[in-house]
Design a protein around this nucleic acid. Sequence first.
DNA 1: TTGAAAGCGCTAACAA
DNA 2: TTGTTAGCGCTTTCAA
Lengths: 350, 350
Amino acid sequence: MSDAPSVPPSTDRTGRHGPTIRDVARIAGVSIGTASKALNSNGRLRQETRDKVTAVAREIGYRPNDMAQSLHRTRSMTVGVLSTDSFGRFTLPIFQALEEQFADRGIAIFMCNATDDPERERQHLDQLLGKRIDGLVVTARRADKRPPVGPLPPGLPVVYVYSQADDGDALSLLADEDGGARLAVKHLADIGCSRIAHVTGPEHFEAVQQRKRGYYAALAEAGLAEHPGYYRAGLWSEAWGREATELLFAGDAPPDGIFCGNDQIARGVVDALRERGISVPGQVAVVGFDNWEVMTTAARPPLTSVDMNLSALGHEAGRLLIDMIGGEKVRGIRRLPCTLVVRQSTSRQG
Amino acid sequence: MSDAPSVPPSTDRTGRHGPTIRDVARIAGVSIGTASKALNSNGRLRQETRDKVTAVAREIGYRPNDMAQSLHRTRSMTVGVLSTDSFGRFTLPIFQALEEQFADRGIAIFMCNATDDPERERQHLDQLLGKRIDGLVVTARRADKRPPVGPLPPGLPVVYVYSQADDGDALSLLADEDGGARLAVKHLADIGCSRIAHVTGPEHFEAVQQRKRGYYAALAEAGLAEHPGYYRAGLWSEAWGREATELLFAGDAPPDGIFCGNDQIARGVVDALRERGISVPGQVAVVGFDNWEVMTTAARPPLTSVDMNLSALGHEAGRLLIDMIGGEKVRGIRRLPCTLVVRQSTSRQG
DNA sequence: TTGAAAGCGCTAACAA
DNA sequence: TTGTTAGCGCTTTCAA
């Protein structure tokens, strides 16, 4: 069977998970310890030996078994990402950023989805803990408060992203929605709007509350009056955007600037305005929220929009989790700034 | 320190990964072997002993270490999902379905993203193989052919989903795009359209080729003539949908049915038609592709669209991979049927 | 019915 | 410079 007669007699058994370091050592004619040193390029070894071992390893397709390694180390080099709401448009850029961060450090990601089902969440958590993850990221679609996941082993680093735990000791990373709203309203004021309306989604969303706060705060800062009827909460849909526009323009004091709670609403608004023969941004300027390219660039005109920088949020989450795994203590709620992306719905050149 | 004086003296050392079975055994006052039997409810043991052990385990929060277990088993109970194009709208429902399938069987998922970067793909693959995954799913945004991933250890089950390997021995799961196109065109013919156009995306997409084939085949089957200028390839955008509509209606024989390559194009088409004062579906019926709800329901009127059932594709992929892990040999290209979802753009009741 | 011990694949401390 | 060995946490014979 053997094509290498110089190889010492062996059981010819290859590990159930593929060739093992024992196989490498045997074929290379060295001890296991030596093989280990050679492959991990540490310890003092003759270059010749080192080369021989690595050559054999390559030849037989040896690949160290991470699970066996992790049994020694205090790290499994894996983290769990638990989405407590289904994978969606908002969690996606966060995932992507997390993935980059961790992949760069050789940390693998267990991805789990527990769509608002506590039972499933429990199962996933059990599984992740069985895998001895080094850290956990919890994401959601909404930034509303949620009960903390758990119970978890003490000391397991956890970061909530775009999601907030009802637990003062937890670390939550959120977008500064209030600040985003201010950016939008200030921008409208800066380009000369004085009657600025806010058409937004359902009031039970925390995000709606925060953006509303930012809206009023920015109005005050700009020295603009609040107008009853300029604030309209409804649905997150284009249809609501169109409907709200009708309502706003039915009155005697139509707005000259509209800050929308998301891009779908904004798109509905610009459509309705166009169909009423009102020019955007000439007569009315419009700002959306989310900077969802599918919407912002397809709208006529393309929409100025607030970007929550979810990708940055994900990167920061990854960075912090890695720090925490490294032993740092981090807690509290951190809000990352939003950015305004200007397009033609608020400027002629855009 | 100890609040249980009856417990035998110990090193008071808890494993680096949390309490171990040794801890359980020591505290329960039994041997490790006994504890193992009790916790895995096998072997013959006195009920009393069994209860004592499980009680202790629960109390100290013992959780078996999967990595240590996997060292014995021939399975790691993990699979890798490698996205060779970034996580997106198309891969999402597939992920979700895969996740369900695997989670139900206690299999964890390593999620990796290698956005068209072969180097990164190699890294991820190395990592996954180090983790001793039991199987691999490869997804992509496009269904175009790609070189097979690898090199992989022989016998490692792989399934390509919404993605096709340039390797006859591989298993690929795809949507039946040709069939989907036929569904759409047949539907249009059935409701009385006789001049059916096809506005689609860039020709270098395999999907475009296939849908085009289905379009012509269905025309022939319905006994309808091909009309030069009724086939328009362009971009995957609303703007192209609008532009193509202008082109189609500039000629002398405007169509009375338009099958679009995706929902964005379709939305552009219905918008352009409405603005031209052409009623949909009264004068022209329109069908989209993808059944992307954001588009289909926001369009006016809501769009009839072909659904590729990506979720079903994901489920099937999971099922097959599990079969393959179980030892079954599966190969070849499988195309799963599309479905037509009828809405108002082709029917008055909708 | 329970305990002891070998070993999964690997690393690291210690000997030689 | 290299080999030996004791674990990492667990399962599984084989003895007792």
